[in-house]
Amino acid sequence: MKVTLTVNGTEHAVEVPANTLLVDLIRVNLQLTGTHVGCDTTQCGACTVHLDGRAVKACSMLAAQAEGAHVTTIEGIGDPENLHPMQAAFREHHALQCGFCTPGMIMQAIDLIDNNDGLDSQTIREGLEGNICRCTGYHNIVRAIESVANAS
């Protein structure tokens, strides 16, 4: 079946089997491999992308469900020369160790900032319930997000 969607500002029409997951369309068909697959069971959040502005787990929806949608992946928010403020804060606060969870953490963190006023550290911790860092680097991740929340 054909799925038409906009990813990072570019429209794509992709021919995929109906049982294709959104994350596979992103990684395999569009070769945007910054979005990771960790658990593949809706738990770890490494596959988090924005669907029409809200954070979702791309391993747990069909590509077909994104028909007509605007998807933003980690590649769409900044580049090495112009980091997104959240990426810059993660670098500044050493908020990553192995880096596997980082794309999902950053996409979820941006959703948290966009949809909450006055984030405190407890709200940030609760907001990261759907993202797992197996290096257990949560403390610096929370600090990084807090710094962006305080600056905005």
């Binding site: 809706t42 959040g45 988090t48 669907l51 809200r54 954070a55 979702v56 787990k57 747990s60 929806m61 979820q108 959703d111 948290l112 907001g127 319930e129 759907g130 993202n131």
Partner: peptide
């Protein structure tokens, strides 16, 4: 319910 990403879907 669940987590933020799950609540969005």
């Amino acid at each position: 319910i669940g987590d933020n990403q799950v609540r969005n879907r």
